[in-house]
């Protein structure tokens, strides 16, 4: 039941993506941060949200699990559907949305607890039984590619880990509650090349089971790990398509300028 395979999965094959974003707009006062964004994010795929700093990438993925509502100043229009179900429906509680659509932030946010307790954080919220917690934590640490490094000292403080390990622990923590979609907001921007490489390897594995949406302003990273790219500029989607198509044969001038580094 909570293993992440949703019953309607089989039915929704093909074009209708796992997450459907339609006419999404976000504004702060009179200023539009996102304007009429329509996107389809398929299952078992890494989708990269690419674009220059300040173009609304963070705001966009925060819309996908209603984190955006934590900023009271922002007004949101349009719809986001997970398997056809509108996430912004009044009947839907954001806390439940976030248990199926997990999120990892720019900087690692490990809590001042042991590695194990960090990974178990989301499970403890629902008082899952100990065996289940043990199994889920192990599974999540493996999927996040951290198990081999930490399985001997799960009781050590998570703060003792390196930045890259901490970020993978955050991924494990998000995975432990078995989300259907994982959102990553520039997860490597605070990491060194080695840490970045490990995260990228982890992300490539994750898509075997779930959908991943990763924000990056790094064209190389998008090329290395994503299957699809959506290029954002000034709050709008400029173009979207398979990664090689977008990065090698962009149709739009803005996209080409960005990926060739001639961006102004």
């Amino acid at each position: 039941m909570i293993d992440g395979s949703l019953p309607s999965d089989a039915a929704s094959s093909g074009p209708p993506g796992l997450l459907e974003v339609e006419h999404l707009g976000v504004s702060a006062g009179s200023r539009k941060i996102l304007d009429d964004v329509t996107l389809s994010l398929p299952d078992r795929t890494v989708s990269a949200v690419l674009g220059p700093s300040g173009c609304g990438k963070t705001t966009f993925i925060r819309c996908l699990n209603r984190m955006v509502e934590l900023s009271p100043a922002l007004k949101i229009v349009g719809s986001v559907r997970l398997l056809g179900r509108d996430l912004y429906d009044r009947e839907v509680d954001p806390a439940l949305v976030r248990r199926r659509i997990g999120m990892v932030f720019q900087r690692p946010t490990v809590f001042p607890q042991s590695i194990f307790e960090n990974a178990a954080f989301g499970l403890r919220l629902v008082h899952a039984d100990e065996d289940e917690v043990d199994r889920s934590v192990m599974d999540a640490l493996k999927r996040a590619g951290l198990w081999d490094e930490v399985h001997d000292d799960l009781d050590r403080s998570a703060l003792a880990l390196s930045g890259g390990q901490q970020q993978r622990l955050c991924i494990a923590r998000a995975l432990a509650v078995k989300p259907r979609v994982l959102l990553l907001d520039e997860p490597t921007s605070s990491l060194d090349p080695h840490g970045t490489q490990r995260i990228e390897a982890t992300v490539r594995h994750l898509k075997e089971e779930i959908a991943v949406v990763i924000v990056t302003h790094n064209v190389g990273q998008a090329a290395r790990i994503s299957d699809r790219v959506a290029f954002f500029h000034a709050g709008r989607v400029v173009e979207v398509g398979a990664t090689p198509d977008i990065l090698e044969r962009p149709r739009e001038a803005l996209t080409e300028q960005f990926i060739t580094g001639r961006f102004t």
Binding site: L6, P7, S8, R85, D89, R90, E91, V92, D93, P94, L96
Partner: peptide
Amino acid sequence: SAVPASGWAD
């Protein structure tokens, strides 16, 4: 929002 209705059962 309200406590989720049965629509979430699956």
